[in-house]
Amino acid sequence: MSPRGVAITGVRERLFEAAERVLSRDGAGGLTSRAVTGEAGCAKGLLHNHFADLDDFVAQLVLHRFRLLAERAAALPARAGESTVTENLNATVLALLDSAGPALAALALVRPGASARIRDAWRDGAPGLNAIEASVATYLEAEQRLGRVSGTADCAALALAVVGTAHHLLMTAWPGGPDPRERLQHVIASLTGRNG
């Protein structure tokens, strides 16, 4: 615990990281403000000092996570010509399905207040799946110019298929269930013909 009256740096990130650990361990039902602050090792009221309520915290957590994933995907086009197309796509898109991903999606679904805030932020331009899809399409087009993706391939459709599959698996997976990443890897390998 931090001593009373001592400022904590990086509070939002610390709370977000703690929430992801709680979600990975206990699922969506285990996420409470008390569980998050306990996991973060800080005062119980700290979460409510930085967020309007738990719905605001959940919405900001989801938006933060998608911003980081979109930033990661934005770096993908620069990898054109390196490694293989399959490996590059796996390294980027599989991050959507890491340990806290399905639990976080479930949490956002069961908290209508959080879902509405997330939708509003995405409508207003916050990075989400659309940004990831656009980066994947740009990457595939770059690989197409290098001859590592078929010249007849519709790169926008392939990007939609990859990101759409990731979204489907994110929304239908559950903590402790089968690993959805294996299914996504299979789809990516099938779409890229394993030779890119």
Rank of each mutant, 00 (worst) to 15 (best):
S2A: 14
R4G: 09
R4Y: 10
V6D: 09
A7Q: 14
F16I: 00
A18Y: 04
R21D: 07
G27P: 09
G27V: 04
L31C: 05
T32C: 10
S33C: 10
S33L: 09
R34G: 07
V36F: 00
T37P: 09
E39Q: 05
A40W: 11
G41F: 00
C42A: 09
K44P: 12
H48R: 07
H50M: 06
L54W: 03
D56F: 02
F57K: 00
A59P: 05
Q60A: 13
R67P: 00
L68P: 08
L68W: 05
R72K: 13
A73K: 10
A78V: 06
A80M: 08
T84Q: 11
T84E: 07
T84W: 10
V85M: 04
E87W: 09
L89Q: 09
L89R: 09
V93W: 14
A95T: 14
L96R: 04
L97I: 00
A100F: 15
A108I: 00
V110L: 15
P112M: 01
A116N: 05
R117T: 00
R119K: 12
D120W: 13
D120L: 15
D124G: 09
A126Y: 02
P127A: 13
G128T: 01
L129A: 13
L129M: 13
L129C: 08
S135R: 10
A137L: 11
T138I: 10
Y139M: 07
L140G: 04
A142Q: 11
A142Y: 05
Q144M: 08
Q144I: 02
R145N: 11
G147P: 05
V149A: 07
S150Y: 03
G151Y: 07
C155E: 08
A157I: 03
A161F: 12
V163E: 00
V163K: 03
G164T: 01
T165N: 12
A166G: 12
L169I: 03
L169G: 14
L170H: 06
M171H: 15
A173D: 07
A173L: 10
W174K: 13
G176R: 14
G176E: 02
R181L: 07
R181T: 09
I188K: 05
A189C: 10
L191W: 02
L191H: 04
R194A: 13
G196M: 05
